[in-house]
Design a protein around this nucleic acid. Structure first.
Length: 484
RNA sequence: GGCGGCGUACCCAAGUGGCAAGGGAGAGGUCUGCAAAACCUUUAUGCAUCGGUUCAAAUCCGAUCGCCGCCUCCA
């Protein structure tokens, strides 16, 4: 398996520190507001990575934190006139609600910064003792100059950064590049007692404390959005390696952004859609598919059109599933081989290998989806040739299993076609009930018996205008929701 | 200004040295009472542009143009 490592800036063979075991830490969210679709991308990307590692047989320990104390939370609390911890609680609940809907699994450990104040203080003390940090007016800063590897993740040196000009000016720091490990609290702000007085943790230190506590001083994978590379992850490396004297993380994985009109979606630009908004228009599976149809490191332009295409693609999957089960229930008869059987068998037999090769190559979910649709095409082609008999049934059953296994890693394609149709009815806000549709189908069937094609077509048209498509089959009329 | 990334068909998007995946849209066809679905054919001798290396380049190297990100809280 190969993974692109931000630290080395190239794809590397994945060799965990401990055989068959993967320790993985992903930066979660700061709970001060609703999550937007960019947060969804990050969560889904690492959810899939975590699922695939488990699928490969690794014993994965996956930690995803919550930042539940921070300036933004304090400001939000002031603005809303509620206690800061209520803000944190509220948006933690919102996060879970969004993630559950998106099919993002819970991590094995989901620690919070405020639950690790003691560990944080111990590390800050340790860093002061080792000479990497200093106290100033009740705050503690990390001295960037003391850590020689500073900049190795974000590939920049100190001079470059200062040349960038926008470096925070703060009288209390010895050097403008230094960052806070512990922040003295102002009047009326939440605080914890510490050797340096009342205060709260800086942003970066919580991840050091929690990853060391719940994983180890050195672990395999650390992930997050690409915007965390600097300063967050760079600072994490500095303080962690200074503290332990050991390499902090072996593989750094960062996902790309979602863009709107080519610009990064962000809170500050205001060009974002919340997860809730998007899920008001599209089924969660559609959102997941849309986000996984592009490689995790590439930017994704958020687009209604692309979301609709994702919906059409998923519909193609479930439509094929219906064809397969129609075939299974109707398949009797003698063995009948067809011309397309060989190609289909090849596709079936090579499928698993292709999927794993795609995922092994830096988690290429887009390529994986390509393979899935290749198999779908072969299955449809095979069915078009009207095969029959035991051998054909076995092949179809195997196909169904393979598709479901691949879908399982991505956590899509896990519903029944009926559930998908119901989900589409909901997300497209179709006004008719299933019962209404069945009544119309019956009416039309009667017209068709009488060969009253005008009446029959009128009903088809009427339903079509409501987004419902009728399909006449040998044993009756089926219906589906128009996707896209 | 420094550092990094991207540019593949009408749209989206894989592919990082060996015949250009996949999805959508378009056109034609098979099937159908008509449809839908599905399948078949078709749509890049071409991968921003110009050079170079190589038996072989979308892929490696150099230059140019365009777009974006990070350097400040950010997924």
């Amino acid at each position: 398996m190969r993974i692109y490592n931000t630290l080395s800036a190239e794809k590397e063979d994945f060799i965990p520190l401990e055989k068959d075991r993967v320790n993985m830490y992903v930066c979660g969210v700061t709970v001060y507001d609703h999550c937007h679709i960019g947060h969804a991308r990050s969560a889904i990307v690492f959810d899939v990575i975590q699922r695939y590692l488990k699928y490969k047989g690794y014993n994965v320990r996956f930690v995803r934190n919550f930042t539940d104390i921070d300036d933004k939370i304090i400001n939000r609390a002031k603005k809303d006139g509620i206690p800061w911890d209520e803000v944190a609680r509220k948006y933690t609940d919102e996060f879970y609600n969004d993630m559950d809907r998106l099919g993002v699994a819970r991590a094995d450990m989901e620690p919070k910064a405020t639950g690790h104040i003691k560990e944080i203080i111990d590390i800050v003390k340790g860093l002061i003792d080792k000479g990497y940090a200093y106290e100033s007016e009740g705050s503690v800063y990390f001295s960037v100059d003391k850590f020689s590897g500073y900049g190795k993740l974000s590939k920049r040196d100190k001079e470059d950064m200062i040349a960038g000009a926008r470096v925070e000016v703060d009288e209390r720091k010895k050097d403008p590049m230094d960052f806070a490990l512990w922040k003295a609290s102002k009047e009326g702000e939440p605080f914890w007692e510490s050797p340096w007085g009342k205060g709260r943790p800086g942003w970066h230190i919580e991840c050091t404390a929690m990853s060391i506590k719940h994983l180890a001083e050195s672990f395999d994978i650390h992930g997050g959005g690409a915007d965390l590379i600097f300063p967050h992850h760079e600072n994490e490396i500095a303080q962690s390696e200074a503290y332990t004297g050991k390499p902090f993380v072996k593989y750094w994985i960062h996902n790309g952004f979602i863009t709107i009109d080519k610009e990064k979606m962000s809170k500050s630009l205001g060009n974002f859609f919340t997860i809730k908004e998007v899920l008001g228009k599209y089924d969660p599976e559609v959102v997941r598919f849309f986000l996984l149809a592009t490689h995790y490191r590439s930017p994704i332009e958020f687009s209604d059109e692309q979301l609709k295409e994702a919906e059409v693609s998923i519909d193609r999957y479930y439509t094929t599933l219906i064809r397969i089960s129609d075939f299974m229930t109707g398949s009797g008869g003698g063995e009948k081989t067809t011309g397309s059987q060989k190609a289909f068998e090849d596709a079936v037999n090579s499928f698993k290998e292709k999927i794993q090769a795609a995922m092994d190559d830096d988690f290429n979910t887009a390529f994986t989806l390509g393979h899935i649709f290749e198999l779908i095409r072969e299955a449809n082609r095979f069915l078009d040739a009207k095969p029959s008999g035991q051998k054909a049934a076995e092949l179809m059953l195997k196909t169904k299993g393979l598709l479901s296994e691949a879908g399982g890693v991505l956590n899509i394609f896990s519903r029944t076609p009926d559930e998908w149709r119901t989900a589409l009815m909901r997300s497209k806000k179709i006004q008719m009930t299933e019962q209404d549709v069945l009544v119309k189908i019956k009416e039309r069937e009667e017209a068709r018996q009488k060969k009253d094609w005008a009446a029959s077509d009128a009903i088809r048209k009427e339903l079509d205008e409501k987004g419902i498509i009728l399909e006449d089959k040998k044993d009756g009329t089926a219906w589906k929701i128009k996707a896209g």
